[in-house]
Amino acid sequence: MKVKEIMNPITDHLSPEDTLQSAVVKMRTTVREDRPGVKGLVVLNERGELVGVLTIKDVLRAAIPVYLDTRLSKLSWDGMLEEMARKVACRRVKEFMSKRLVTVPEDAPLMACADLLIQEKMQRLPVLNKDNRVVGIVYIKDIFNVVSQIFLDQEKCKL
């Protein structure tokens, strides 16, 4: 099976110039598997090329000051997260999106996708066509579904 057979087609995307505020609105309203709400969106420039991915982790990271480490975060005051979140609401997607693009071509074998997801600790991979345009996203859950279906299709394991 190729990745394009199981990927989810792109329904929405962000622009690098979007604010985090408008980005979270899109994340909350984009529909996936018939339910609104996604944990990540691809970021495309005005020419439609993939320039990054913004996930809920990136949004959280935006609210955590870079100077904070585990020693200092224990000393933080009540309300610090909320205060920091207010400060970054109007900053741009391009500042916080992850720019390290890990993608797969649409005819990539599933093994290559599974390996990339695990090795790179990713939750999702944008799928590119021959013109390097994003045509879909494959989620770790999609590959898990394939593997688990194979398990279930087998005879019950005897121990």
């Binding site: 100077y67 904070l68 200092l72 205060e83």
Partner: peptide
């Protein structure tokens, strides 16, 4: 010292 400074200044 700089990370603690940024932390205190935010506080």
């Amino acid at each position: 010292i700089a990370p603690v400074t940024l932390f205190i200044c935010d506080a």
